[in-house]
């Protein structure tokens, strides 16, 4: 359990810290030039600024995907395949559009079996989507969560099962009712 002794640092020695965190990377020369122009023109801020024009439709994602510079080149030639790289497929991309508003729930009953929702299935629920007419939703009726198809008629709301054994539920004024989220996908295992 020994630790190497480190000589004390002289104050003010070494490279001056950058105001923003930096990282050394390898870039193609033409791009380096571009970036330097940007930096010299004090336009660096523009690179970090977030455009808040499209807030509500935009996808909330922390990861910035970059198709460039996929292989870390230590020596020799970069892989020619990099140029054509499209990345690999990620199911999250396909199924989840609003990460912060997406939840998973487990189905217990068979009231929705005619639309392919069976007991034990996993539902992907997006709370950010509007619960429009005909959508399969997670509704909260008198404190209980249930999955049903939402039918909005002129002056009443129905929660419809997709199974002849279950009658439609008419939501009355005495009920406490809200929609919790819209079901976007069912994940059903076949094995």
């Amino acid at each position: 359990m020994s630790q190497a002794k480190i000589r004390k640092r002289k104050p003010g020695a070494g490279r001056k810290p950058s105001p923003i965190p930096t990282k050394a990377i390898r870039l193609p020369l033409p791009l380096v030039q571009k970036l330097q122009e940007l930096q010299n023109g004090k336009n660096l801020d523009a690179l970090y600024r977030v455009d808040i024009g499209e807030i509500f439709t935009g996808k909330v994602s922390t990861a910035l995907r970059s198709p460039f510079f996929e292989s870390r080149v230590q020596a020799g030639f970069p892989s020619p395949a990099d140029e054509f790289s499209e990345g690999s497929l990620d199911l999250n991309d396909y199924l989840i559009h609003h990460k912060a508003a997406t939840f998973f729930v487990r189905v217990t009953g068979d009231s929705m079996k005619n639309v392919g929702i069976f007991p034990g299935d996993l539902l992907i629920v997006d709370r950010s989507l509007p619960p429009t007419n005909g959508k399969v939703v997670i509704a909260v009726l008198n404190g209980e969560m249930t999955v049903k198809r939402l039918e909005k008629e002129k002056n009443r709301v129905l929660l419809c099962a997709e199974n002849a054994d279950y009658p439609d539920i008419v939501v009355t004024e005495e009920d406490s009712f809200s929609t919790w989220g819209v079901v976007t996908n069912v994940i059903h295992s076949l094995i």
């Binding site: 939840f103 998973f104 729930v105 487990r106 189905v107 009953g109 996993l122 539902l123 969560m145």
Partner: peptide, 8 residues
């Protein structure tokens, strides 16, 4: 995965 909210 085993403790997800349940709906019927």
């Amino acid at each position: 995965w085993k403790q997800l909210p349940e709906v019927s």
